[in-house]
């Protein structure tokens, strides 16, 4: 787990300020999607070895939801962006 995360809005902050939710590639199905799609969305989570993108909440900071792309083995962080991609923010 990374020790420091560079929030696009707040800059480099300790991991303890963030709360991790889960896989950021999951997309909420349409309301009329099949039960199977909904089941997968609500209950199935990958546990990949290697590159993974996750929703992180800067819960003790700007309270924006971010997408953190990181490596679960090496702990390298490839990038952090706001879930709304055009809200990249100024800080680096």
């Amino acid at each position: 787990m990374a020790s420091l995360i560079t929030c696009p809005h707040c800059g480099r902050r300790p991991t303890q300020e963030f709360t991790i939710r889960s896989d950021a590639s999951l997309k909420r199905p349409a309301p009329d999607a099949s039960q199977a799609d909904w089941h997968d969305y609500v209950f199935l989570r990958p546990n990949p070895r290697g590159r993974h993108s996750e929703h992180w909440h800067h819960s003790a900071g700007c309270r924006r939801w971010l997408v953190v792309e990181r490596d679960t083995v090496t702990h390298e962080v490839y990038g952090v962006r706001d879930v709304v991609s055009d809200l990249a923010g100024g800080a680096r």
Partner: peptide, 13 residues
């Protein structure tokens, strides 16, 4: 609060 923020920012920006 966290749930509402997720809904507002991720589901329905």
């Amino acid at each position: 609060m966290t749930h509402l923020e997720f809904c507002a920012q991720v589901h329905w920006p």
